[in-house]
């Protein structure tokens, strides 16, 4: 009963997000010529493939109640490392393997510090953020162009879908990551343990779940996804630069939250980050199509659309919850699950 209700609540957020995305896209299509085309829609995925991957990895961490601020720096670091190694003439696939390894080790190290010494994830990953950025300064302060044949080939490879409209290889990778993440979260022991830790770490320990191992593992996943995102981003940019993606961690976190994942942990649906990314992508596209906003109005417009989105989402959810509470109150006593969200602010 209780479990059922929780999943329902997730569904409300996901559905409201989906509804709002359709509304937003519809509004854009009505307002601007050339907005309602396949390519514009595909571009949302092409331009944000790396963000989808990073946000999906981050979602696991957030569901356990943690946070990873290092993601953006790791992406930048990976781009610099790949560019530097490729410049030395290393094999492209070896470079990718090294990058993934770096991501895994970086994530695992963060997870170890957090778990073993009971440090707060904010601080550890903040240090990780400085470290990854700083380490890429060590390699070079310049931006490096990638001329490797494999990388450029992947970067320019177009998969035609509808007519001459195309998606890139990165989009396929990103969607695969999302699919795997949904599967892992829903159908594996590991996935259930992640949710259990986020719900209550103490109960998870009492249930006999291997909490330490899973904590380290979620940060490792986040590190891996950041590295994978970094590789995809490198395809996208064909360059390594340490100032890439300053502040992108906030975009990733926002994408998770808009997608209905609770920052306090325990709740969430792994398709959420994807929806969150698409939502902010549409907002950006609308602002670009508008084409007359000055720098500051761009900021205000992006922020205000974000606000409106979150607000409507909250209103839908609150209204639904209230109806549920009322209907339950009429019949049986209100269940715990509904109560939990009512006193606001989590």
């Amino acid at each position: 009963m209780k479990l059922n209700l929780r999943i329902n609540q997730n569904n409300i957020i996901i559905l409201s997000t989906l509804l709002l995305i359709i509304l937003l896209y519809g509004a854009g299509s009505v307002l601007y010529t050339g907005f309602f085309t396949w390519q514009v829609f595909f571009n949302l995925f092409i331009d944000n493939a790396y963000l989808i991957i990073v946000a999906t990895g981050l979602a696991f961490v957030i569901i356990t109640g943690g946070i990873d601020l290092s993601v953006a720096s790791v992406v930048a670091f990976v781009s610099v490392v790949s560019a530097a190694l490729l410049q030395e003439g290393m094999n492209a696939y070896a470079v990718m393997a090294i990058c993934l390894l770096i991501g895994i080790m970086f994530g695992a190290a963060q997870g170890y510090l957090i778990q073993r010494f009971d440090l707060h994830p904010w601080i550890v990953t903040l240090a990780g953020m400085f470290l990854a950025r700083g380490a890429s300064y060590f390699i070079t302060t310049q931006s490096i162009v990638i001329e490797n044949a494999t990388y450029t080939a992947i970067s320019k490879f177009k998969i035609n879908l509808v007519g001459s409209n195309f998606i890139s290889v990165s989009v396929v990778i990103a969607l695969a990551v999302v699919a795997i993440a949904i599967y892992v979260a829903k159908y594996t022991e590991f996935g259930r343990a992640v949710f259990a830790i986020g719900g209550s770490e103490r109960s998870a320990v009492l249930m006999g779940l291997p909490v330490p191992r899973i904590t380290v593992l979620v940060y490792t996943i986040s590190g891996f996804c950041s590295a994978l995102g970094g590789i995809v981003f490198t395809f996208y940019m064909l360059s390594g630069y340490n100032l890439h993606l300053m502040g992108m961690e906030m975009d990733a976190i926002a994408a998770c939250v808009i997608g209905g994942i609770l920052l306090t942990g325990g709740f969430g649906y792994l398709v959420g980050p994807l929806l969150g990314v698409i939502c902010s992508g549409i907002i950006q596209t609308i602002v670009m199509y508008q084409g007359t906003l000055s720098s500051w109005w761009t900021k205000i417009a992006v922020g205000f659309l974000l606000f409106l989105f979150i607000l409507l989402q909250r209103v839908i959810v609150i209204r639904r919850q209230r109806r549920r509470i009322i209907s339950h109150a009429a019949g049986k006593p209100a269940p715990n699950g509904g109560d939990r969200r009512a006193p606001a602010s989590v």
């Binding site: 976190i253 939250v257 761009t298 205000i300 922020g303 979150i310 607000l311 909250r314 969200r341 989590v346």
Partner: peptide
Amino acid sequence: LGIQPMVGTLILMTVGRG
């Protein structure tokens, strides 16, 4: 409104600088 703090303040972070 029960918006999560980090995202709630993210809005003002973006709009505020604008």
